[in-house]
Design a protein around this nucleic acid. Structure first.
Lengths: 128, 128
DNA sequence: CAAACCGTATCACTCATATAATACACTTAG
DNA sequence: CTAAGTGTATTATATGAGTGATACGGTTTG
């Protein structure tokens, strides 16, 4: 079952969005199997040290996107086939990359420079 | 003088951070000359349709970073030599890229895939 | 000099985020 | 069956972000 072990909250934005993104990344990565159960709202809130309502907000948005299913009394579970996985993956990758490209172009960075920087930082991150 | 023409506000975060980032990107790109005057808080607030206090918050942070100077009664102006430019540029590029790399690795993206994606989206953005 | 503009500061208000404390109906495990 | 756990809902409170209005003193310009 999903553990939320690798989710470290920061001050970059609303907590419910960080939870939402974490689950989406797991789905995109294939780390979370189709039909897999999610830990309950209360368990996650205790793990992260946040309010149950905050977790509920993230779970609700996941359900509205059709990525999880919830039934009163029972645990929620993931419903994400290969098509959904691919869709989420493309969505997340596109969001991040486009924002970075826009910022880089505004700073006068060339395509070659951008590729070199990405390659360099990628390897640097590997070494850590 | 800096016009704030290319700054389009979105819902990605606080307005004062978007203004802060816009000016920083201008400094990093060399679009803004050293000693150049900034439009007043009131002018910018009217241009963007936001409150003067919001602009003031961004200007204040710029001053705290030593990138602009303000004197009561007179217009603020940029004080950013080549060293400061380089520092800001590295700071912005590193922030964006590292965040994207972290997200990509968590989604199981390979380095080659990341480079191909960046190259592809860069060209796609050129065409727009 | 005087009017216009500027940086700065303050107060009150709205809204989103997050917390806190419950409550209720349903499912599941002992 | 019973108790524990679960999804869901409600109300109240606190905080930060952003707005709106206003004020004061200093600088610039005609």
């Amino acid at each position: 079952m999903l553990t939320f072990d690798r989710l470290v909250l920061d001050e970059s934005g609303p907590i419910y969005l960080q939870i939402l993104r974490y689950v989406k990344q797991g789905i995109a990565a294939g780390t979370i199997a189709n039909g897999e159960e999610l830990p309950s709202r209360r368990v996650v809130s205790a793990l992260l040290g946040v309010n149950p309502n905050t977790v509920q907000k993230a779970y609700r948005m996941l359900e509205e996107e059709g990525l999880i299913q919830s039934h009163t009394g029972a645990k929620s579970c993931v419903v994400a086939d290969e098509a959904a996985r691919s869709r989420v993956r493309t969505q997340l990758l596109g969001q991040d990359a486009r924002a970075m490209i826009s910022a880089m172009k505004q700073m006068g960075v060339t395509r070659e420079e951008a590729l070199a920087l990405l390659d360099s930082l990628w390897k640097e991150d590997d070494a850590t």
